[in-house]
Design a protein around this nucleic acid. Structure first.
Length: 112
DNA sequence: ACCGTGACGAGAT
DNA sequence: CATCTCGCCACGG
């Protein structure tokens, strides 16, 4: 049944919108939450098109190391860091400080 | 219709 | 411990 194909892009946007201000998460975490074990790339690619979607704080999504790998895709290379700092997240040398403290886990926060 | 590429991650060597 | 390779889905050429 389920003739509908799972549109992961949309699912990713839904999750990203739930990220609270001052928190961040990783591509792989979102992917895992959606059931994609190794679909982290998909999440990143979805973010590439996120600028077409409103209310999608892509700056709150970083890689597993807490690095702002996608900063180059923002309006300006420093925009991502500025947005994060505006959220209250400390960023230094393109890396989120206290990453484990500001980390937002959907499995934990939203529940499974 | 086919192939390559892409804001990543985990496992293998 | 560092490096390499494969896998995941979608989209462009």
């Amino acid at each position: 049944m389920s003739n509908e194909k799972p549109n992961y892009f949309d699912l990713v946007y839904q999750v990203v919108r739930e990220i609270p201000r001052g928190r961040v998460t990783s591509y792989g975490t979102i992917a895992h939450y959606l059931g994609l074990k190794s679909g982290a790339r998909m999440v990143g690619y979805a973010m590439n098109a996120a600028h077409t979607m409103p209310d999608v704080p892509a700056q709150r999504v970083v890689n597993r190391q807490g690095l702002l790998t996608g900063k180059a895709h923002f309006e300006t290379p420093t925009k991502m860091q500025e947005l994060l700092e505006a959220d209250g997240v400390r960023v230094e040398n393109d890396r989120v400080q206290d990453f484990d403290k500001v980390f937002w886990d959907p499995d934990k926060e939203l529940g499974i």
